[in-house]
Design a protein around this nucleic acid. Structure first.
Lengths: 84, 84, 84, 84
DNA sequence: CGCTTAATATAGCCAC
DNA sequence: GTGGCTATATTAAGCG
């Protein structure tokens, strides 16, 4: 086996590691997506309107992100005052 | 508290449960996505071509899906024969 | 007629052209979809299982896409080697 | 070759015909979709807002369908009067 | 008619 | 920073 071959097979093995890690994570993601679907299906079966639920979640998410933005803004102000 | 109020608050509580379950799963999903990004970033830092990696993963995924489709087809045939 | 009006009417006319082109294509698409339906209806009337047919078509399509992906991957490798 | 084999191969050939007809139509459909994309891309390059265009097209389509419905309704009235 | 699957529209992301 | 591309969300259709 030449040195190049060794390097190649090391690279290939390393590449394989990365790809498999990514693929495993993709599978986990798929599982999560399944679970999310199940939650909505269950809620629907209990008579809730899934569309409305998703809308609610969007709004809640925006509010959260908004809070984060506000906090970042406060932090900026703080720094500006300390450095000013 | 009227009976309607009770029903309403039960429904509201139940709805909240569903939404929170969904939101928690969404957070898990976001975490997974972070991890996937990290894997690719690390591979890139080690000199691998991310575009090639993703292409490889696509092909591997497609092969898997193909197997699933083939099995589904066999199942369809089986049913067709049983019912024929 | 002011210059703005001229510009506006030019834009409006141009926009109309684009929309009509798109709409004509949409109609052609609708016609094609009709024809596809007819083929399946005819096959069904001749005793074929439409579900099986569609499954077969899916597999055939996936095989084709796989070939395309493989070729794209080869191209990616080629470029990587040239640039390496 | 048994009679069954003959029947099978006739069926298989016929099935192939149907599948190929469907696949050809699918290809035509794909071509049309490409063209539609091109129209929107061109319009976008000329400065038009594709989202707005699509909205306009939706409205125009609804108006058309509305007209058809109105005409069908008129036809119903006509028949009712003639027969009444 | 509802429910599952396919088509389309939108949005987020990445590379240039 | 923009444009292309992929992933997701929404909508429509086909099927039982």
């Amino acid at each position: 086996m030449s040195q190049d071959d060794q390097i190649m097979s090391i690279s290939a093995a390393e590449l394989k590691q990365y790809i498999e890690r990514a693929e495993n994570l993709e599978e986990e993601k798929a599982t999560i997506l399944e679970h999310i679907k199940e939650v909505f299906a269950e809620a629907k079966a209990r008579g809730f309107d899934v569309k409305v639920m998703k809308q609610l979640m969007k709004i809640r998410k925006m509010k959260k992100e908004d809070l984060v933005l506000q906090e970042e803004l406060l932090e900026l102000y703080r720094r500006a005052l300390n450095e000013g």
